[in-house]
């Protein structure tokens, strides 16, 4: 893919975004939205050049593209909406469409984790704080948003920076790379999945029983199942029947563990330290939040105004900063 076309598409989208950031008349705004959309569509089209119609994956791809469009549009609204609460709400929409994309990318656990943690916890916190720190509109401006929410700061340089980043990242993404190792990666990942299953004896037993109800135990002499992976990606394990006779059961590929099991397995077996550290990070955050939320010295109205820089400096009192 020619990078130059990509840069052009980025430029068109950037111009559209710039015009959206500077609130002018509604005509400009809709025109800008159209331009931005056009740019985005162009980019997506460029990305989808490698689409092979013969494979027949049109429907999932269509769904994917729809989620992508929703995600990007919501992100644009996040950054251009003058009222902060709406920004948070649009962000929730971004998260949800992102989760949909994750599901289509076979990352089900992460999709739901995203929705629960992000949309359910983090964004709710943001909403709380927004409402806490909201300034009520005064008589002069009515129900309009406050000035510092309406007017963007130097959108041109911001958009330019964004354009540079996206252009470079896009060029990196779409630079030619070899794709000759899909077979090997597939085999490796299936092998790893089977070994993950082998490390979960209970699940393995359940799967084996699903194939052959007479299976009593799947453990080998040293306590681990003996598994052989066949070329067609199924696995043959040595089981013991209820009557004690050893047989072999072939598990089809559909018996592979599903996404949450695999993610959990990976977390525990391959990233235990990171898991612990994540816990530590959360502990630190909690402690920090406790420290931050300590009770402040109560300031009188007058002193608080002085401290905020808005009143007469009758007596310079050091404020109530912790």
């Amino acid at each position: 893919m020619v990078p130059f076309l990509f840069y052009a598409a980025c430029a068109v989208a950037s111009v559209g975004l710039l015009l959206l950031l500077k609130p002018r008349s509604g005509v400009t705004r809709s025109g800008a939205a159209l331009a931005g959309l056009a740019g985005l569509a162009w980019m997506l089209a460029l990305a989808a050049e490698t689409f092979d119609a013969a494979r027949g994956d049109l429907l999932p791809l269509g769904g994917f593209v729809l989620c992508a469009l929703i995600s990007v549009a919501s992100a644009v609204r996040v950054i251009t909406h003058p009222r902060p609460v709406f920004c948070a709400l649009y962000f929730i929409l971004v998260v949800v469409s992102g989760a949909a994309m994750y599901v289509l990318l076979s990352a089900e656990f992460v999709a739901f984790a995203l929705v629960i943690v992000y949309a359910g916890a983090i964004l709710i916190t943001y909403l709380f704080v927004l409402m806490l720190a909201q300034q009520s509109p005064d008589e002069n401006h009515g129900a309009e948003a406050v000035g510092y929410d309406r007017i963007a700061r130097e959108p041109a340089s911001a958009v330019f920076a964004g354009f540079v980043i996206v252009a470079v990242l896009g060029a990196a993404i779409f630079s030619p790379r070899s794709t000759t190792k899909s077979e090997a990666t597939q085999t490796a990942s299936i092998r790893e999945a089977w070994s993950d299953l082998g490390a979960m004896p209970g699940l393995l037993l359940a799967r084996a029983k699903g194939i052959d109800p007479l299976v009593a135990s799947v453990q080998g002499p040293d306590g681990r199942p003996i598994m052989v992976i066949l070329p067609d990606h199924s696995a043959r394990i040595a089981v013991t029947h209820t009557d004690g006779s050893p047989t072999l059961v072939t598990l089809p590929p559909s018996a592979l563990p599903d996404n949450p099991s695999r993610v959990g397995m990976a977390l525990v077996t391959r990233f235990p330290v990171s898991l612990e550290l994540a816990g530590v990070i959360l502990l630190m955050a909690m402690l920090g939040a406790v420290v931050l939320a300590r009770r402040q010295t109560e300031l009188a109205d007058e002193q608080r105004r002085v401290h905020a820089g808005r009143g007469r400096a009758s007596e310079p009192t050091p404020g109530g900063a912790p």
């Binding site: 920076a161 540079v164 470079v168």
Partner: peptide, 10 residues
Amino acid sequence: MAGGVGLILA
């Protein structure tokens, strides 16, 4: 910072 990151990326 963003500009610097962009340059380095480029």
